[in-house]
C-alpha cells in the first residue's frame, strides 16, 4: 500500500515537472495556430501566421543566415574539434586533464561573458558582421565536438591505426580509412550538436553580429521589442521543432554508436574465453 502510494507520488512529481517544462511551449504552439491576435481567446484554427512568415523577406533572409551559419560553423568546428581531440588524446595524462578542463570551461561559462569577450576581441581586428558571428559560433562549437569525439577515441583500440601504418598506409590514409570510420558516430553527433547549438544561440550572436546581420533568434528578439506578432509564435514553433528533431538525431546516432561499440567489445571479450576448434 505504502509502496503504491510512493509510486503514485513519484509519478505525479515527474508529471508536474514535465508540465511546467512543456506547457509554455505547448501554449506557444497552440497560439501559433490561433486565428486571433489575442493571447487568451481561441479564434479558430489557421495557418495564416505560417503563410505570413514565409512571405516575409526579412524572415527568409534571417532563416538563410541561420542555416548557413549553423552549417558552416558546425563543419569547421568539427574539423578543428576532431583534430584537437586527436592531439589532446595523444598528450600525457597530466596535460590531457588540463586540456579537458580548458575545453569544459567555455561550455559552462555564461554566454553573456563569452559574447562580450568575443565582441571586444573581434572589434579590434575585423568588422562585426557575418564573419565575426561565424568565428564566434565556431569558437563555442569546438568544445562540443571534442566532448563527443573523446569518449570514442578513448574506447578505440589505437593499435588498429598502428596496424594500418605497419601495413604501408601513410598517416593521412591511416586516419581517413581506419580511424575515421571508427570515430564516425562521435563525429556525426558532434556535428549535429554543434549545428543545434548554433541555431539555438542568441546571446553570443547578439553581441558579435554588428548591424545588418540577423539570425532567426536575434530577429525574433528585435521584432518582439516592437510588439508581439503572432508570426513570431509560428517562427518559434518551427525553431522548436527543428531543434527537437536535431536532438533526436543526435541521440539516435549516439545510441546506435553506443550499441555498436558495446556489441563489438562484448564480442571481443567473449571471444577471448571461447574455445577454438580447427
Amino acid at each position: 500500500m505504502v509502496e503504491k502510494l510512493k509510486d503514485l507520488m513519484s509519478r505525479c512529481y515527474i508529471a508536474l515537472i514535465l508540465l511546467f517544462l512543456y506547457i509554455p511551449i505547448f501554449v506557444l504552439i497552440v497560439l501559433s495556430f490561433n486565428n486571433s491576435r489575442s493571447r487568451v481567446v481561441w479564434g479558430g484554427f489557421t495557418l495564416d501566421w505560417y503563410r505570413g512568415l514565409f512571405a516575409n523577406a526579412q524572415i527568409r533572409e534571417a532563416l538563410i543566415t541561420t542555416l548557413v551559419l549553423a552549417f558552416a560553423s558546425a563543419l569547421i568546428a568539427t574539423i578543428i574539434g576532431v583534430s584537437g581531440a586527436l592531439g589532446i588524446h595523444a598528450m600525457s595524462r597530466r596535460n590531457y586533464r588540463i586540456m579537458m578542463i580548458f575545453t569544459n570551461i567555455p561550455m559552462l561559462n555564461a554566454d553573456i561573458v563569452t559574447g562580450i569577450a568575443l565582441m571586444l576581441w573581434f572589434i579590434h581586428f575585423i568588422p562585426l558582421g557575418f564573419g565575426s558571428v561565424l568565428l564566434a559560433h565556431i569558437t563555442f562549437n569546438i568544445p562540443y565536438v571534442i566532448m563527443s569525439v573523446m569518449p570514442q577515441l578513448q574506447r578505440m583500440n589505437i593499435s588498429i591505426y598502428e596496424a594500418a601504418r605497419d601495413l604501408g598506409a601513410n598517416a593521412l590514409y591511416g586516419f581517413f580509412k581506419i580511424m575515421l570510420p571508427q570515430l564516425m558516430g562521435g563525429v556525426l553527433s558532434g556535428f549535429f550538436m554543434a549545428f543545434t547549438m548554433s541555431i539555438d544561440d542568441f546571446v553570443i550572436t547578439y553581441f558579435t553580429k554588428g548591424a545588418g546581420v540577423n539570425t532567426l533568434s536575434t530577429m525574433i528578439y528585435g521584432e518582439i521589442r516592437k510588439g508581439i506578432k503572432p508570426e513570431m509564435y509560428a517562427l518559434s514553433t518551427l525553431i522548436f521543432l527543428v531543434v527537437l528533431c536535431l536532438l533526436l538525431v543526435v541521440n539516435h546516432v549516439g545510441a546506435r554508436n553506443e550499441k555498436k561499440n558495446r556489441k563489438y567489445y562484448l564480442a571481443q571479450e567473449s571471444n577471448e574465453r571461447e574455445e577454438f576448434t580447427l
Binding site: 598502428e162 596496424a163 594500418a164 601495413l167
Partner: peptide, 13 residues
Amino acid sequence: VNTVFQKYSLFPH
C-alpha cells in the same frame, strides 16, 4: 617489416 599485434588489431569495419 610487419607486425602482429598483441590485441589482434583487425579493422572491425
